[in-house]
């Protein structure tokens, strides 16, 4: 089983096509819509959490890409701003995937994007608003 949060960008000409329902029907993927901005004749943005078997997930994502949807992991939109971060490390213990880690030599917090699930816990917890998400 795999759970991923992804951002889907639909080009203008695709906005009126039904696409996402096939993820459930053809690929057995459970999807949860976290954010949707789809209006006629404009680029559409959909943020989804997808849950399913690894190969179903891969096939589903391939299908979306072939349909012309641009896909990116939501975690790519998460940024740790080292200008704002004081490196207290409060977020580190709360990160469920250890995407945030504390280096006890440099005394700094490091963000490993590839491990991030974009759960957003760190965003709320950071007292200095040093972690942001934009999509």
């Amino acid at each position: 089983m795999i759970t991923k949060r992804i951002v889907l960008r639909f080009p203008k000409e695709m906005v009126d096509r039904a696409v996402v329902w096939r993820l459930a029907k053809d690929f057995n993927l459970e999807f949860n819509i976290l954010k949707a901005e789809v209006s006629p004749a404009e680029e559409g943005i959909l943020v989804l959490e997808l849950k399913g078997k690894d190969d179903d997930y891969q096939r589903g994502v391939d299908y979306l890409k072939k349909s012309g949807v641009k896909i990116q992991l939501l975690s790519e939109d998460i940024v740790l701003d080292h200008q704002h971060c004081v490196d207290c490390g409060l977020c580190v213990a709360l990160c469920p995937t250890q995407a945030l880690r504390y280096d006890s030599e440099s005394l700094q917090v490091e963000f490993f994007q590839e491990k991030c699930l974009a759960c957003g816990i760190c965003i709320g917890v950071c007292p200095y608003k040093a972690i942001t998400i934009s999509f």
Binding site: D87, C88, G89, A93, L107
Partner: peptide, 12 residues
């Protein structure tokens, strides 16, 4: 897990 409010980097 334990985490801190105090910044050791800033203290340093």
């Amino acid at each position: 897990p334990a985490s801190s409010f105090s910044s050791l980097r800033k203290a340093r």
